[in-house]
Design a protein around this nucleic acid. Structure first.
Ligand SMILES: [Mn+2]
Ligand SMILES: [Mn+2]
Ligand SMILES: [Zn+2]
Ligand SMILES: [Zn+2]
Lengths: 133, 133
DNA sequence: ATCAGGCGTGAGAATCATTCTCATGAACTC
DNA sequence: GAGTTCATGAGAATGATTCTCACGCCTGAT
């Protein structure tokens, strides 16, 4: 059952570890290629999917629908504040919101409840570079 | 500037008004075709986009990435509890969450803040029909 | 009501992220 | 080290959404 340890899988994990921000599969593929650690695009997708299934990476959808991946510091459930320009991310805890979400959903007779809570904004750096123009 | 009133646009709005649940553009297209009010798929997409821009419909992304549309009762900002099987929707108010979201984001120096807060589950009806099998 | 010009329409092509196919090569077991 | 199994990758396929552009329907002015 354990995933086989290959050069490609290792390269993907290492790239994620060095990156602090949410990145798309395509971006990661390009990053790996630039480093010479070339990995097939399909393999990047497969590695990311496996990592997501194992809860080793978090996945979220950008506004344009593209999936973004990140190796977060915490393994526990949490949420994110993400810069929509550069992907910079702050991990967020929301005990208040957690309680609110499950209460509201249960009150309506819904089961198998999940919630999507993500905050998007422009980080201080991206605001600064936009002002420069 | 005002959008021209055409048979197609009217048909899309009417279909949305009769539907209580979130539906995809493809589903709406099929519904219209079934009624004989046939409308081109590209036109359905354009009508929905125009309505979304005018805040006449809410848009959200299903877990598979497909966009879902709904004409909600309230025009004001709100969130949703949606059945992932049939699209059944309950509109949700979250004053607590609103305050929490803007405070958290501002504390991190982020601007132009938006939030995505959606609840997904299985509604009572869909749970019942799943049990039947 | 008519007319002209502009905007909306729709069939099909194009786009683009993601997934699939399948022949080949690299891990792990013994 | 040999054999079995699973991962890889190039390219094709998929599927939602957008684009193209020739044609026709709204609409405001006459
Ligand atoms: Mn949560
Ligand atoms: Mn809100
Ligand atoms: Zn930024
Ligand atoms: Zn349901």
């Amino acid at each position: 059952m354990a995933a086989r340890m290959t050069r490609q899988r290792t390269a993907v994990v290492e790239a994620l570890d060095e990156l602090a921000d949410f990145r798309s599969a395509q971006q990661l593929h390009e990053t790996l290629r630039a480093r010479g650690e070339s990995v097939g695009l399909a393999t990047v997708y497969r590695a990311l999917q496996a990592l997501a299934d194992a809860s080793e990476v978090d996945v979220l959808r950008a506004e344009d629908g593209e999936s973004l991946y990140r190796r977060c510091a915490r393994r526990e459930h949490h949420h994110h504040l993400v810069c929509r320009h550069c992907g910079r991310t702050v991990e967020i805890d929301g005990p208040t919101v957690e309680a609110w979400a499950s209460k509201v959903a249960a009150a309506q007779g819904f089961d198998d409840i999940e919630h999507t809570i993500e905050l998007w904004g422009t980080c201080a750096d991206c605001r600064a570079s936009a002002a420069t123009k």
